[in-house]
Computed example of a mutant assay.
Amino acid sequence: MFVLVNLKAYPCDPVAVAEAAATVADDTGTRVAVAPQAAHLSAVAATGVETWAQHVSGVDHGSHTGSTLASAVADAGAVGTLLNHSERRLRLAAIDAGLRAAEDAGLETVVCANNPPQVGAVTALGPDMVAVEPPELIGTGTPVSQADPDVVEEAVAAAGRVDDDVPVLCGAGISTGDDLAAARDLGSEGVLLASGVAKADDPEAALRDLVSGI
């Protein structure tokens, strides 16, 4: 199971969370990654934790003020990137461009989608992984695996009909080991979470509880 922690723009200490994640990953043998703000990528990568970007732009070097270059993200130490998170929605053409830019920079990719039909659509673009995240459950503490388990199973099926080599991650409301175990039982190969770790008083304890479900 892959655990990807998105720090969003929460007022947490990204280095402290990264150090906690690195410790838990080393102690348990679990693949744990952290996606901080772009400005914190280098500091997070320096902890030794697997580091991901929250977004990259589908452009190359040039007149693109405000864009996040995939190559710059890779230079900062990231090995992967999210695309199309529900808080950073993209059109299919922009997702495709982002995937191509990430591929050129050697970055692994997770493309987010709201529901099973969208999962199928983005799987066709060739990401390394997809994540199903019903936006109404994000940040609620109510995991999709409990609120609507059919969404997870249908997302896995939708991806499989297009390319059964693309794993599906489960997002939205994930915070405990029970949540992770439920996601796994529904066919997910990992989880994407944020507030359950980023807002925790003790991120290491939160992560240890989370991976206890593996």
Rank of each mutant, 00 (worst) to 15 (best):
A97Q: 07
D128R: 08
G29F: 15
Q54G: 09
L125F: 07
D179C: 05
P117D: 13
D209N: 12
P203F: 15
N6F: 12
V156H: 10
C112T: 01
G173N: 01
E153K: 07
A74V: 02
A194C: 07
A93K: 14
S67Y: 05
V166Q: 08
V17W: 10
L193T: 11
S42I: 00
D179E: 10
D128F: 01
N115H: 15
A113G: 05
T142A: 13
K8E: 12
G58H: 11
P203V: 14
T47C: 07
A53W: 03
A157K: 12
D104W: 11
G173K: 07
V168C: 10
Q118R: 09
Q54K: 11
R184D: 11
M129W: 14
T142Y: 05
D60C: 00
P149T: 11
A198S: 15
P135N: 01
E133F: 08
G98F: 10
A159N: 03
A198P: 07
P117W: 07
T81E: 01
E50S: 15
N115Q: 11
V197W: 04
L125M: 14
I95P: 01
D104V: 10
V73S: 02
A172P: 05
P11E: 06
S212H: 12
A158C: 11
V111C: 12
E136T: 08
P36F: 04
L107D: 05
A35L: 13
R31S: 15
C112E: 01
G80T: 06
R208T: 12
L180S: 06
P127I: 02
G29V: 13
V110K: 01
I95E: 02
L193V: 08
A21G: 10
A20D: 01
V166Y: 11
S67N: 00
A183M: 10
L193F: 12
T176V: 02
D164N: 14
C12W: 01
L210R: 02
T140V: 09
P36T: 04
E50A: 15
A45L: 05
S67G: 05
V111M: 14
S86T: 09
S57G: 01
V166W: 03
G48A: 09
N84M: 03
T81Q: 01
R161H: 14
P117T: 00
D148C: 14
D202K: 09
L7T: 06
V56R: 12
H55R: 06
G177N: 12
A205H: 02
A39H: 06
A74K: 14
D165E: 14
Q118T: 06
Q37W: 13
G141A: 10
L4C: 05
V49L: 03
G141R: 07
S188P: 05
P127S: 06
A155C: 09
L41C: 06
V111Y: 13
P135H: 06
P149N: 05
A113S: 09
A194S: 14
A206Q: 11
S63R: 14
A131H: 04
H85W: 07
V73H: 04
D26Y: 03
T28Q: 08
T140A: 04
E50F: 02
D202W: 13
A131R: 05
S145W: 04
D201G: 04
Y10R: 12
G187D: 11
H40M: 08
D202S: 04
A46C: 08
D26Q: 14
R91F: 12
P143M: 06
G66W: 02
